[in-house]
């Protein structure tokens, strides 16, 4: 009993790590006023880049670095579209996800001749636990940075009162650019964690909706770092539980259908948003294009 409980807890910490990275990425972007439903695509690109660079250069850290850069590049396309060219954030975010879904197999085909999985990274060239610790360090840094530093304040103002920030002589677009790019790097690190720690290679569409789940965690956590992390842990717990409960008979004679456990996080998010389990308020200027008068 104790054994399986510990197993579930450690598994929870592991599977919530990519989620938390992506949710922090989303948090950066959304607190600055830019909706980010592109998290899914950013994660996917990070997962792919992380895996192939870690494999080619025999270092998960290099894989991570490359993943972060790939995230920044993809996020830059998104930032240019929505911050400068006035594209709708939901539409452009959807497009970025499709772009990632199409580009990754395209590049994979050029590099390896196949569109499915990347070569397997040897066990000693993968992460064992470093990302798990780092993500919590990042969380604390972001928590203090947003709350206690001038530049953190700029990000919050860009999301709440962009006009006021502009009046104070700080460029709203610049702040949003910075936040979206950093968000892209973080989300990509989440993807890279998936491919270099939780598994041993990139597999086609391996993010499987985790970007959207991270977004849900962010909203569930009311756009605040610590509660968002708790939401990620909760979602990670349901994922760990689902892995553990596969084929287990709880009542009657049939095993519990995994589908019921799989939809739990999404159901919880809908209920939270409906105000049935607490209330969540987005940043005031979230999703609004900013134009200097």
């Amino acid at each position: 009993m104790i054994d399986s409980l510990l197993q579930i807890l450690s598994s929870t910490l592991r599977v919530s790590t990519p989620l938390l990275f992506a949710a922090l990425g989303g948090l950066m972007s959304e607190r600055s006023g830019v909706i980010n439903i592109a998290l899914e695509g950013l994660m996917l690109v990070g997962a792919f880049t992380g895996a192939i660079v870690a494999y080619s250069f025999h270092s998960p850290w290099l894989g991570w670095g490359a993943a972060a850069i790939s995230g920044v590049l993809l996020a830059a396309i998104y930032a240019a579209s929505v911050i400068n060219w006035k594209a709708d954030q939901i539409v452009a975010g959807t497009a970025i996800n499709m772009l990632a879904l199409g580009m990754v197999p395209f590049i994979s085909k050029i590099l390896y001749g196949v569109t499915g999985t990347s070569p397997t990274i040897p066990a000693d060239e993968r992460f064992i636990f470093a990302p798990i610790i780092l993500v919590w360090v990042f969380l604390l840094i972001i928590h203090f940075w947003l709350g206690r530093t001038p530049s953190g304040l700029w990000v919050r103002f860009a999301g709440e009162h962009p006009k006021a920030l502009d009046a104070a002589g700080i460029g709203v677009k610049k702040v949003r650019w910075g936040a979206v790019l950093m968000g892209g790097a973080l989300a990509a690190l989440g993807g890279a964690t998936l491919s270099t720690m939780l598994s041993s290679a990139y597999a086609r569409n391996m993010t499987a909706g985790r970007g959207f789940m991270a977004l849900a965690a962010l909203i569930f956590g009311k756009w605040r770092p610590i509660p968002t992390a708790m939401a990620c842990l909760l979602f990670g717990f349901t994922e760990a539980l689902q892995i553990r409960l596969q084929g287990v008979v709880l009542w009657g004679t049939e095993p519990v259908p995994v589908q019921f456990i799989q939809i739990l996080p999404y159901l919880v998010t809908v209920l939270v948003l409906a105000g049935l389990v607490g209330h969540s308020r987005p940043p005031k200027a979230l999703g609004l294009f900013f134009e200097k008068d």
Binding site: K86, A95, N97, F106, K109
Partner: peptide, 24 residues
């Protein structure tokens, strides 16, 4: 030799981005 059907997603994504990016 190198291009697969996945390019369809890339084409669609680029069309969407160009259509939605009014400022462009």
């Amino acid at each position: 030799e190198h291009v697969t059907r996945d390019i369809s997603l890339v084409l669609q994504a680029l069309v969407i981005l160009c259509v939605s990016a009014e400022g462009l």
